[in-house]
Design a protein around this nucleic acid. Structure first.
Lengths: 333, 333
DNA sequence: CTGAAAGCGCTTACAG
DNA sequence: CTGAAAGCGCTTACAG
């Protein structure tokens, strides 16, 4: 094709430079070349280009299938926005849902081993051994909605679990509640742990140490979520680490003949379908997925194009959504 | 790398043939080459290969963002299984969520214009003009869960909407019901239309023509779903074209003080989250997504590798899931 | 600012 | 069954 562009009487070297926006071509010449290329319907052969540069203008997005339980639209929404941003930047994306088998056997997707993608986004938590294995590939990478101090050299874009939960708890305390419990197995994921620490911080700062109480929601070695509320001392508010847990808890309370929010109040986190389809609907925190996506893409592309190196941990805020499961009570008046 | 494989004293032509499973290499030699390649950790350069063959061993999966409303796990599940099957066959996948803007402005994804994917799967319905535009690209393609008689030359893998709904309706009639209504705007999508026709067929065959009644669920020019049940003559059973409609209808009935399944029965279709999270839960039909995925991948890969040409419309069956919203009544006894 | 030359790592006829 | 030669369409130094 370049040959034909030589219809302009220049060398293909010049054409290549003009089309790739490289310096070393006169402005008028460049414009002439570009318009001629369009006129001729020129389409660059990306393989030939990639053969020389090793860049496909493509980023891989990896996520464990564990995060695609039903109701988990969270990551899909993020992916959608990533796709939009990637397209804007002239990039293509490969979305790989990691099976449990691949994760256990440390099988790295073809898109990475074959160098088809120029960079990779690790969406959500995955097994440490798996991350180690991927980390051996010298390709730009970024955690999204996950971080691990063992892999501190990998930057990450994160929901502000800690501070958001702190604010959330603080708000509820301000509204007059004291006996507030946290629901979540804190060692299950880093997110749950961070949310719990945010809760604790607020409780301690408000001198409510004596009310601090944490319920488990993920029995060991079980994949399902479950909350045991066979407890005489019901709190005023259950702060659940996520909407799904809140949803399950709601069912458990109903079975015991308790009414939400009359007898006890509940809040969730994530603003997923569970918080909207339950009855009553659940007050929760919404995460700005679009911003997480935009930030992640911006950074990974910069890394790929060598424009910048280190970002560390980039935090994205959340917004409270009020629903039926938590309603201000008389204490606030 | 091939050069180094010449450590075996053969030409790189032979190595290329051996590694690609082409004929023209002795069996012993092939094995020797393959094991040497593994030993040396050889990784084929896919770009160089693609430059000659124009094949990246990659398939693109396209879907309109309209199908990623919340609760729509349907297509994501299919994608997940597609990814697994593709990996098994040594293929990579690019998942492109088509924005409304791209669909309206007939913008074709880079993965197709640049020839990065060897074939493309069109998941779910999209605008006819958009399909026409894509159809101009001479690349193997297949509809999944959609068909259009205007594009009869494009094969498709489909849920058996017509026959499944026919069977479903027949079952219900057998259980003693006569006054059965269909809920769904039949001109909205081909799937709804086919489901309706299946319902009608069963009604007519059982001489229940006089009971045939169809309610709208998608007001014109509205994106939300809504069911108007301000109707004196309630049927015994509402057969909704999908779970979401059933879910909405359930709410509408509750507001009128009606109880399901006591006062009236409801069934949905698709077995999505809506049918499980509602209260009562909704009897529905489950589609074998894994089979849809497996079939689609098998066919698109065959098309890419020129092993076969024409499949026409390939139908995948559904399975009834009984839940609370439809319970056998005394008539069956 | 522009061009001639070499080469990226494969595969495809063609010849033996 | 095996190999020598040419070429896929770009980009990267190097030279002017």
């Amino acid at each position: 094709m370049e040959d034909i562009a030589l219809a302009l009487g220049v060398s293909k070297v010049t054409v290549s430079r003009a089309l790739n926006g490289k310096e070393g071509v006169g402005e008028e010449l460049r414009e002439k070349i570009v318009s001629k290329a369009n006129e001729m319907g020129y389409q660059m052969n990306v393989f030939a280009s990639a053969l020389r540069t090793n860049k496909m203008h493509s980023v891989g997005i990896l996520i464990s299938e564990r995060y695609f339980g039903e109701g988990d639209f969270f990551y899909l929404e993020i992916y959608k926005h990533m796709g939009i941003d990637l397209t804007k930047k002239g990039y293509t994306s490969s979305f790989h849902i990691l099976t449990q088998e691949e994760e256990n056997d440390l099988i790295i997707p073809k898109m990475i081993t074959d160098g088809i993608v120029d960079g990779v986004l690790l969406l959500g938590e995955m097994h440490k051994d798996y991350i180690s294995t991927i980390d051996k590939f010298e390709i730009p990478k970024l955690f999204v909605d996950y971080y691990n101090s063992q892999f501190r050299h990998i930057d990450s874009v994160l929901t502000d679990n800690y501070f958001s939960f702190y604010n959330f708890t603080n708000d509820i305390i301000k509204e007059g509640y004291k006996n507030i419990s946290f629901v979540g197995t804190i060692k299950a994921t880093a997110s749950i742990m961070d949310r719990y620490m945010g809760y604790q911080k607020a409780m301690i700062e408000n001198n409510l140490e004596s009310y601090i109480k944490q319920y488990e929601d993920r029995p060991e070695d079980e994949s399902f979520i479950f909350v045991d509320v066979d407890d005489q001392a019901l709190p005023e508010v259950f702060m659940c680490n996520c909407d799904y847990t809140a949803y399950i808890l709601l069912d458990a309370l109903k079975e015991k003949g308790l009414f939400v929010p009359k007898d006890v109040k509940i809040v969730g986190f994530d603003d997923t379908l569970y918080s909207r389809l339950s009855s009553p609907t659940i007050t929760t925190k919404h995460v700005d997925l679009e911003q997480i996506a935009r930030t992640s893409i911006k950074f990974i592309v910069k890394k790929i194009e060598n424009k910048s190196k280190k970002y560390g941990r980039v935090i994205v805020d959340t917004k409270r959504i009020d629903r039926e499961s938590f309603v201000f009570n008389s204490k606030t008046k």
